[in-house]
Design a protein around this nucleic acid. Structure first.
Lengths: 237, 237
DNA sequence: TTGCGCCTCCCCCGAAACGGGGAGTGAACA
DNA sequence: TGTTCACTCCCCGTTTCGGGGGAGGCGCAA
């Protein structure tokens, strides 16, 4: 399977459009021998990019109801270091059980594994495989495929970012070390007087750096500048 | 080499302390057949964690001069999707050339490859291997080792986060969807009136969500709350 | 039935931030 | 030599923020 995986990755690597990549992702269903495969990039300027083998009906329902806001899989994956086995999610709330029930009715699969991947500018994506199978059998398959899926997910995410990326941030801003320091101090919770003191400069000087950084980031205000700095990975916090 | 890599990862996986992981990282130098290996976690509450085979003198100099602020490798890796070959960095500025000169004098190695890795809460780390070799020969080695290094880096980063993580964020906050929405709108650059309008609520209501989210995040002010929300991956932006 | 969380809305006032403006020095580069 | 960038500092009026307070309805779980 590992050689087939490597071949699949080489094939994916040659693709040059998001549509082709999307089709390539859908094709992984046979290779991975699961009911469904989903690549779900949650952050792209607030938009979402989904490539899934789920039914069009379920995908439309998910989108229309904005289920990303309450999807326990997305919630858990956002803060996960390792891949998330659906078995280990908290399904205790009524909303989560309702969601799972609706999803199962829609043919999503009773078991799943979701692998998070992150990009340099705060982008976040999940590769999910799901299957209808007994929990114990699924756990064994999960143990066998986790390493390969992590590599596959990093690769697909990297490829998606490369294909999509130039539109995200045509020209990534560069902050001077002091500009970065100024925003970082604010991001760490310091007030302006405290930030100025921490950096050994006056509040007036700090303000100049904040303003300059704000303009470079194309931000509308200081909160926006800090948010962009953090999500672009420009602040050492 | 791949079987040896897999064995090394299994050994690393059994480690239970950061010191042991650090020693394990140092030991990768022989396996990878390079002059130096460095695991450099740049974000841990603003602190840095470094495990490197560089000389103690260079490490102390790097720390004392806070060279992370100007290190072109760190700068490029922060925003990189793929591993960064030092050959492809911008060494044109005097500061960058001075840095490279000092580093080379300190025995760092003339060529390097740096692999970025990210954590769910905005953590950022780099696994760097460096070697003194001709550029063309290095490029060939890079091509051969990139996939393995990406997997190795994700693994070490994940392990480091697991070992270190409980101290980072003992209890990860959970925001209600509306709280998250409120901060997300601010993070996207909207003023409070605009954010309220976008969400279809009053400014007073928005303020309640901002305050509530701020308390849950343990933030000192709104900027801090947004920064934490973004870096913790809690905001869909 | 009670308590809690989420979502919704309002008021006052002092402190802080913002938006506009002004200025300087030193180093590096064309 | 002139320009640009980074780093440094100051003023003032207006706007926004944050800390304090108040209130309601709805749904869910114990």
């Amino acid at each position: 399977m590992r050689q087939a995986l490597h071949d699949a990755i080489e094939t994916l690597n040659r693709l040059e459009t998001m549509d082709a990549l999307s089709n390539g992702v859908l094709g992984l269903k046979e290779l991975l021998e699961v009911d469904h495969v989903v690549f779900h990039a949650v952050n792209h300027s607030g938009d979402q990019y989904v490539s899934a083998t789920y039914s069009a009906q379920w995908q439309e329902h998910y989108r229309a109801e904005d289920l990303t806001r309450i999807d326990p899989v997305v919630k858990a994956s956002r803060t996960a270091i390792r891949p998330v086995n659906w078995n280990q999610l908290d399904w205790s709330s009524k909303a989560a059980r309702g969601f799972l029930s609706d999803a199962t009715d829609a043919g999503v699969g009773s078991q799943g594994l979701s692998v998070p991947a992150r990009g340099p500018q705060g982008q976040f994506a999940i590769l999910t495989v799901s299957h209808t199978i007994a929990a114990a059998a699924w756990d064994r398959r999960v143990e066998a495929m986790t390493d390969d899926l992590q590599y596959l997910t990093q690769f697909i995410n990297g490829k998606a970012l490369e294909l999509y990326g130039p539109r995200d941030e045509p020209s990534l801003p560069s902050l001077s070390p002091r500009e970065s320091d100024a925003l970082a101090q604010l991001a760490l919770g310091k007030s302006r007087p405290q930030a100025a003191e921490a950096l050994g400069i006056s509040e007036h000087t700090l303000r100049v750096y904040i303003e300059s950084a704000r303009l470079k980031l194309g931000a509308k205000n200081t909160i926006h500048a800090v948010a962009r700095g953090v999500s672009l990975g420009l602040l050492a916090i």
